[in-house]
Design a binder for these strands. Structure first.
Lengths: 254, 254
DNA sequence: CGAGTAATTGATCATGCTCAAGACCCGTGG
DNA sequence: CCACGGGTCTTGAGCATGATCAATTACTCG
């Protein structure tokens, strides 16, 4: 059971990092314990001194921060195959919370196992470092969206991001994927109110850009949606970096 | 010259990570080339395939993202001693820009040197990983602030954050530190307009919380400012993690 | 001293919030 | 199989935070 979940994690890591067979085996043998969490459960709470990272096997989770007044802002969404909280391996004292957005199956993987793998195989260590850093790039993009884009563009951007990530994770296509999320939750991801999310979704539907419902999102016009979102995929870093091209490489083509 | 700049970087790393003398020497011998950049220069541009990371020796820099329309959002500020763009070591293809906010002295350190140090000394690799991850935590906090706090609280929070980081960097105290930044730049960090930044600063001054001018910020009432910002330092992760407390540790106290 | 940048002020505008009520949807139990 | 109930979605009306536009004043640095 852990193995199949870890296979998804390995696949994820390989989207960004080159990992050989030995390293693959090390990932598959990380072990861990499968757990269920109910919707609204906190998987991690601020202040926790964590000893495990959580691989999302099934369901949706979100990292969030909360103001004194209780207003909640999601800072990241995690889908199946994400090791949400890989951060905690290197920074065990959580300064954030992670919540199950719907009933979730997680695999709790010990930091000790993750660190041992990272130490035994430098490529694994770098893959972990790379993935947490890519997550940081996503945080930064969310910051930029919240700071400088109007509500409808934020909505559109989030839909494009999730679609792209779903497709890379093999959970659907970028234009048609399953997701169970309420407008309240979208509001907390977008820094809006649920009422306004509702109106923005209606606008996107009216423009013929998306269709929603039945726990799915379907994008009817990707180009138009991406344009309205100013969505450019590069920040997701879903490209294994080519070896730094030697300056002379261009000439080899002829 | 590089050595003294690298000493600041080492000091910074040691705020979060335990590094021995050999590791310290490795950091001090990273080498690099000192360069000057004028205000408004881009130190890194989106799409660059970078080969060096940039240590800020003197001055202020910002990572930013820009919308089609040209609206700019800073996603991170970097002060002296910050290795801005340590991220690029593991993700060389920049999906962001870095700009000099005022005349800046940087030390360009080769990725090859940084990676070699990380590979030779696992503790250095982890320190790098930890610092980039802590940066990610700061991005996440900015996201939360932009999404869920009103302008005056965002302003207050940024001032608290910079003060705290300045103090840890040894560049002043948290309540009185030098900084050269325009209201336009603050606006781009806070997702506001310069006009509104001006008004929020006036409000904070009128409440007797801060004093500004002469390239300094002085905080007259830290507690009140932190309260208005809902500032809690934990997200900066300026604490070297205690060894995971064994469950029995509690009993040792008596 | 002069030019350019930055800070400040005022007036109007609009995006997105608040509050409130009603419709819809879906799982549960009678 | 249907009624019930809670959560979610939808709609409307008024409000406010922060944007926009447009001067004017104050620095700063040659």
């Amino acid at each position: 059971m852990p193995q199949s979940a870890l296979a998804a994690f390995l696949k994820r890591l390989r989207l960004r990092s080159e990992l050989g067979p030995a390293e693959g085996d090390a990932i598959l043998n990380l072990g861990g314990r499968v757990e269920q969490r109910a919707r609204r459960d906190d998987i991690v709470q601020r202040g926790d001194h964590t000893t495990h990272a959580c691989l999302i096997v099934e369901g949706l989770a979100a990292r969030y921060d909360e103001t004194e007044a209780g207003a909640r802002q999601y800072t990241a969404l995690h889908i199946s195959g994400d090791m949400c909280d890989l951060h905690s391996v290197i920074l065990p004292k959580a300064a954030w919370n992670i919540e199950a957005l719907n009933p979730v199956t997680i695999l709790r993987v010990a930091h000790t196992a993750l660190l041992a793998a990272a130490e035994a195989y430098p490529a694994i260590g770098k893959a972990f470092w790379r993935d947490t850093t890519a997550d940081g790039g996503i945080f930064a993009k969310w910051t930029a969206n919240l700071g400088r884009k109007p509500a409808h563009a934020r909505m559109a951007h989030l839909i494009c991001e999730i679609g792209t990530r779903m497709e890379h994770a093999g959970l659907g296509t970028r234009t048609d994927f399953p997701i169970t999320v309420t407008q309240d939750q979208l509001a907390d991801a977008l820094g809006l109110t649920a009422v306004h999310v509702n109106r923005m979704l209606q606008a996107l539907r009216a423009e013929g850009l998306v269709r929603t419902g039945h726990k799915r999102i379907e994008i009817l016009n990707w180009d138009a949606l991406a344009a309205c979102a100013d969505f450019q995929e590069d920040y997701l870093q879903f490209v294994r970096d080519a070896a730094p091209t030697p300056p002379a490489a261009d000439y080899c083509i002829a």
